[in-house]
Design a protein around this nucleic acid. Structure first.
Length: 432
RNA sequence: UCCGCGGUAGCUCAAUGGCAGAGCAUGCGGCUGUUAACCGCAGGGUUGUAGGUUCGAGCCCUACCCGCGGAGCCA
């Protein structure tokens, strides 16, 4: 039943007769010759049906097959410069498997809303296939990067009893007799526990935010990878972050060049993503904004527009460190040399793609951490286990979180984050 | 929650307050090398909903519904 030959293996079958199975991407015809573009998920190949070469029945099948109908086609493979992909199949047999009736996504342009309504079909289109292949490669690059460097995968729970950072609005549920529970917004606190057990760990999974964000940079469900390392300080954290980003981008450039071309991505901009990345302090960033005429007060958090302005100053991702501790999470360690700032770092992607990494050195002192929890008005009883990590052999440690969809979006040069995940979840949409 | 924009054929969009249209898709016909093929013909409409102004409303006014993008928040 399963196909014996896939389109991306055609170069090994030149001169042979093969049977391919897939769907009709598009059809063009000219009287007694028909061109059927078959796609099978691995590629596209043009199948030529000449009236003289096949029976009337088979020619009729080629005649009535519609866009996105599934079919199998048999014929000899030869090299052909005129055809997309460089190979062509001279059909001797065409069998329709499932005839499609009025496939809604036509070769002409569609609005994003309509396409999202038909996301289950939209994933078949060339552009979406390219994006999804790049996403899968980014995921593998992430795993390879950490696995090769001695990190251990450490899976945090998705259902949590409290808001990890106490800030974001979370999805809430009734958890049996135990009261309210929430979908996780980050695996980080749990990763810290893992780092104390295994040294270097990373978590990788979906996270959830119930914020009513309606922008092209937000999803309510998105994937995040969060490494956490014992005995790392902020500088070590930044070293790792830039090596990590360089690795992901260079891997995709090497292994997914064809897909980037399909997306018409300007790869010269990605080629520049090599270490070292510029590192500036928050205070330096404020100076840049002021020089650019932005009315900005030291102490405020950087907004999306501010990040874009700073990002445009550099041709590679920029690391902004030492933010005012007031705007950052309770677990971030304060700079011993300046308690007004936290040992935090955000990595801003170029070309206006914004924050792709947020990280910090964690507060490892029990008393300071207790103060932070009180200042942030957090329920201490939920954090006792987290405080135990400071009670029993505390060490300096650091980590960061990288947003998968924002990274894919930047590498692919997408207009909107929702193309970077198979089934995006947004504030007013949970279908299909 | 606030601000801005939008809703017309299956899809993308036109239409000065005066006969509701085009391209794509679909159906039929033509074409032996097409590259979002092309050429001809045909079917396809409660103009988001409700009300109002007007001789006449897709267009102007009011309310509502839905969507989009931005702010805030964040990856």
């Amino acid at each position: 039943m399963r196909p014996t030959v896939y389109i991306n293996d055609l170069s090994k079958h030149v001169g042979e007769e093969v049977t391919l199975k897939g769907w009709l991407y598009n059809k063009r015809s000219s009287g007694k010759i028909k061109f059927l573009i078959l796609r099978d998920g691995t590629g596209y190949v043009q199948c030529v049906v000449f009236k003289g070469n096949v029976s009337d029945n088979i020619f009729e099948s080629a005649e009535k097959i519609t866009q996105e109908s599934s079919f199998e086609v048999t014929g000899k493979i030869r090299e052909e410069k005129r055809a997309v992909g460089g190979y062509e199949l001279d059909a001797t047999d065409v069998k329709i498997i499932g005839l499609a009736h009025e496939y809604p996504i036509t070769p002409k342009e569609h609005g994003i809303e309509f396409l999202i309504d038909n996301r289950h079909l939209w994933v078949r289109s060339k552009r979406q296939v390219a994006i999804l292949k790049i996403r899968a490669r980014v995921v593998k690059a992430i795993r390879d990067f950490f696995d090769e460097r001695g990190f251990i995968l450490f899976d945090p729970p998705i259902i949590t009893p409290n808001a990890c950072e106490g800030t974001s609005t979370l999805f809430e549920m009734e958890y049996f007799d135990l009261g309210k529970a929430y979908l996780t917004q980050s695996g980080q606190l749990y990763a810290e526990s893992g780092a104390m057990a295994l040294g270097k760990v990373y978590t990788f999974g979906p996270t959830f935010r119930a914020e009513k964000s309606k922008t092209r940079r937000h999803l309510t469900e998105f994937w995040m990878v969060e490494p956490e390392m014992a005995f790392y300080d902020l500088d070590d954290d930044m070293d790792l972050a830039e090596e990590f980003i360089e690795y992901i981008v260079q891997t995709v450039l090497r292994d997914r060049a064809e897909e980037l071309k399909e997306l018409e991505r300007d790869t010269s901009k990605l080629e520049k993503v090599v270490r070292p990345f510029p590192r500036i302090s928050y205070s330096d960033a404020v100076e840049i904004l002021k020089k650019k005429g932005v009315d900005f007060q030291w102490g405020n958090d950087l907004g999306g527009a501010d990040e874009t302005i700073i990002g445009e100053e550099f041709d590679r991702p920029v690391m902004i460190h030492r933010y005012p501790s007031e705007v950052k999470a309770f677990y971030m360690k304060r700079d011993p040399e300046n308690p007004k700032v936290a040992l935090a770092v955000d990595v801003i992607a170029p070309e206006g793609y914004g924050e792709i990494i947020g990280g910090s050195q964690r507060e490892d002192n029990l008393d300071y951490l207790l103060e932070r929890i009180q200042e942030h008005d957090l329920p201490q009883q939920f954090f006792e286990w987290y405080l135990d990590l400071r009670r029993f052999g505390t060490v300096p440690h650091a980590g960061f979180g990288l947003g998968l969809e924002r990274t894919v979006s930047w590498i692919c040069g997408l207009e909107h984050l929702r193309e970077a995940i198979p089934f995006p979840r947004m504030i007013y949409r949970n279908t299909p």
